[in-house]
């Protein structure tokens, strides 16, 4: 296929995007409301819409390519890109924690790797791009939120409870023993939203994977089966990620001599 043919295909694909174009009416409405109420968000709205459009179209083409190649190396590369973006995003949010990007990379990476390995080894999903990229994306996306929550919550709690922690250290506690309360609290922060979602699933809203499958024409029961797997896998992966993030974060704040490092206050 020469380049002209390719452009032709792209344009035809874009032409079939008229339904997407129609949905832009809602964005236009939002921009008008923003202007009318002087929320001053029109510019942000336009750039966000354009950026989202370009990103998703681009990722669509990249995925088409990777699906066509159907090679584990490409699939793995896509996962690594997702992981790197997730770790950098988390690292920027967690600047108070020394080495936050490294902590995020390790906790999101190991948590996701372990979950994916269980899913593949148990034969629940094959290592094909169609399976692994969307599933990996969900796992890494949720792990990112978890790592970010754990790293920031722990930094704030260790800062706020320095007095109690130093009292414990002075009695001979190790850094791990003195920060046990903060450690447990951070882990609970990471796990509770997922446990709550699992409790109320279907009663409040239909979850993403299931919604997507039903829209694509799958039967609701088939969609439910996949959704159950997704939910259970996410509870597992955020717990692994949360645990690793909490372990690495507490270690970042204590010296080898069990001294609590200085922590800047939150805004």
């Amino acid at each position: 296929m020469d380049i002209l043919d390719q452009i032709d295909t792209i344009l035809r694909d874009l032409g079939s995007l008229e339904r997407v174009g129609l949905s832009l009416v809602l964005v236009l409405l939002a921009a008008l409301i923003s202007r009318w109420q002087r929320a001053d968000l029109e510019y942000d709205l336009v750039t966000a819409t354009a950026r989202g459009f370009v990103q998703l179209i681009a990722i669509g083409y990249v995925l088409e390519l990777v699906f066509e190649q159907d090679h584990p190396l490409w699939t793995t590369l896509i996962l690594l890109v997702m992981l790197t973006v997730a770790a950098r995003t988390t690292g920027q949010r967690g600047k108070k924690t020394p080495g936050a990007t490294r902590i995020a990379f390790l906790s999101i990476g190991l948590g996701s790797l372990f979950t994916l390995a269980v899913l593949v080894v148990a034969g629940i999903f094959d290592y094909t791009p169609q399976n692994i990229i969307p599933i990996g994306g969900m796992i890494i996306g949720n792990a990112m939120t978890t790592a970010s929550q754990v790293i920031n919550r722990m930094a704030d709690d260790l800062h706020d409870h320095r007095g109690r922690i130093e009292n414990m250290l002075a009695l001979g506690a190790t850094g791990r023993q003195a920060s046990l309360i903060e450690f447990q609290r951070a882990l609970r922060t990471a796990m509770i939203p997922h446990i709550d979602t699992t409790k109320t699933v279907g009663l409040i809203k239909l979850p993403g994977a299931m919604t997507g499958m039903i829209l694509a024409g799958a039967s609701p029961l088939a969609a439910v089966k996949i959704q159950l797997i997704v939910m259970y896998m996410l509870v597992g992966s955020v717990t692994f990620t949360g645990l690793i993030a909490a372990l690495l974060t507490y270690r970042a704040f204590f010296t080898d001599a069990h001294q609590l490092r200085a922590i800047p206050a939150s805004k």
Binding site: G163, E166, N167, L169, A170, L171, G172, A173, T174, A257, H258
Partner: peptide
């Protein structure tokens, strides 16, 4: 360190 801090206690 924990042994040292047991022998040398501290009150804040």
């Amino acid at each position: 360190v924990p042994d040292l801090r047991r022998r040398v206690g501290m009150v804040f």
